[in-house]
């Protein structure tokens, strides 16, 4: 499994916990537009949980720019490089 796939899987698990949905129902394309529980508070919860789990700190603009789990994984990967 590639590092980026591993990161995405970790984020799917985190998102499942924060959003209260099954991880198997989430993909890289999952986001506020297609996951009902993903409102602005859940978005913040998810970002803060990811920051804590992966030891990174996103810029406010990056947080605003995340619209899917794939994008979140991309931003986190960039900070971990």
């Amino acid at each position: 499994m590639s590092a980026s796939q591993e990161l995405l899987d970790s984020i799917r698990g985190l998102a499942a916990d924060v959003l209260g949905v099954s991880a198997s129902a989430l993909t890289a394309a999952s986001g506020p537009d297609n996951v009902e529980a993903w409102d602005s508070v859940a978005h913040l919860n998810l970002v803060m949980a990811a920051e804590e789990q992966f030891g990174v700190s996103l810029d406010p603009s990056e947080i605003e720019g995340v619209h899917s789990l794939g994008e979140l994984a991309g931003v986190i990967a960039k900070h971990r490089q």
Partner: peptide
């Protein structure tokens, strides 16, 4: 700008 409130809180938490 509805998300700014959350970003303010996150900033304070940091």
């Amino acid at each position: 700008y509805a998300t700014i409130g959350g970003l303010l809180l996150r900033d304070a938490l940091q």
